[in-house]
């Protein structure tokens, strides 16, 4: 069987195969009419390298930004979950789920980046990956030099968790333009971002209701650009965008509301904005050693 036969077989079940492979199509022409089966893996490897080589560095860099957030989050939740009588018994199960999923995210991104033949990000002081990887408490100072005490005070733990989750969502969104050269990776970035958004919703909702009753009354989503405290305003700047693709969301009709309009809090909350790498990493910088 030659390579063209393989493609024509795929085409029978998936007529759009050539559209899906459009970026690789030109690379295929270099094979000529016949490729020996034994040489196929090598040829495929070369093909993918040729197709993605130019953009691989940018994609890896983007995935590593996401990985950096996942390491921080996993370590934060594990440390919190392992701190006696920090987390309310009502919320404990949820935070265990989050911890486990953050670990899955680290492993997933590590595997993805490694499979691309690139080097995954590792946090500072990452020395012994065989013990409890990806738990790296030595990489972080979650007190931000004494400003916060998240493992001594549940309210603070929740506040920082919210900031990290929102920042993680915005960071992943901000990396999507770079990731988008590979549509399947972009889809996985969507899936990852959505999982983080579910976590974030849980945390923000806990903060809204009793007994926490956070003064800014956070919703599970971000109304305007409201931060949990003034110090974290930079982590929410730009979240109050009211225009998308040239459409002013505020001007859209809302047949269910009394004034017939989309209120500002919902026009802004309905879209999570992307943060560029520098802006996203600046949010977590005070918490890194």
């Amino acid at each position: 069987m030659n390579f063209r036969n393989i493609l024509s077989e795929i085409e029978k079940t998936d007529p759009e195969v050539y559209e899906r492979l459009s970026t690789r199509r030109n690379a295929l022409s270099s094979f000529g009419s016949k490729v020996a089966v034994a040489a196929l893996p090598l040829a495929l490897g070369a093909m993918f390298k040729k197709a993605y080589g130019k953009t691989t560095d940018a994609v890896v860099d983007a995935l590593n930004v996401a990985l950096e957030f996942e390491y921080l989050e996993y370590t934060y939740y594990r440390q919190g979950n392992n701190t006696t009588s920090l987390i309310s018994s009502t919320d404990a199960a949820g935070f265990k789920v989050i911890e486990n999923q953050e670990k899955q995210h680290v492993n997933f991104l590590n595997a993805t980046i490694t499979a691309m033949g690139a080097v995954p990000f590792t946090p500072k002081n990452f020395t012994d990956p065989t013990t409890v990887a990806p738990y790296v408490p030595a990489a972080y100072d979650f007190t931000a030099a004494g400003a916060y005490h998240p493992f001594a005070d549940y309210k603070t733990f929740l506040l920082l968790a919210q900031v990290f989750e929102d920042a993680g969502i915005h960071a992943i969104a901000g990396q999507m333009p770079a990731i988008s050269v590979n549509n399947e990776l972009l889809i996985q970035a969507f899936q990852l971002q959505a999982a983080e958004a579910r976590h974030c919703s849980f945390i923000r909702h806990i903060r809204r209701i009793a007994p926490i009753n956070a003064p800014e009354e956070p919703a599970p989503w971000i109304n305007n650009n409201i931060p949990p405290t003034v110090a974290f305003q930079p982590a929410y700047t730009g979240e109050d965008l009211v225009e998308q693709e040239g459409v002013v969301i505020l001007s859209l009709p809302n047949n269910f509301s009394t004034d017939g309009k989309i209120p500002q809090i919902s026009a802004t909350a309905a879209f999570d904005e992307p943060f560029a790498k520098d802006k996203a990493l600046a949010i977590i910088k005070p918490f890194k050693k």
């Binding site: 009502t90 919320d91 404990a92 199960a93 949820g94 935070f95 789920v97 989050i98 999923q101 969502i169 969104a173 999507m176 333009p177 988008s180 970035a189 969507f190 971002q193 959505a194 999982a195 983080e196 958004a197 579910r198 976590h199 974030c200 919703s201 849980f202 909702h205 599970p220 989503w221 998308q244 693709e245 909350a269 309905a270 879209f271 999570d272 904005e273 992307p274």
Partner: peptide, 26 residues
């Protein structure tokens, strides 16, 4: 990329609904 902005907000909605259904489920 604009669809991504909407997808993550819908995931916030989904998370909230699951949380109301059973706290700590996602």
């Amino acid at each position: 990329l604009t669809l991504a902005k909407m997808a993550s907000v819908d995931a916030r909605h989904a998370g909230y609904m699951h949380d109301l259904q059973s706290h700590g489920s996602f």
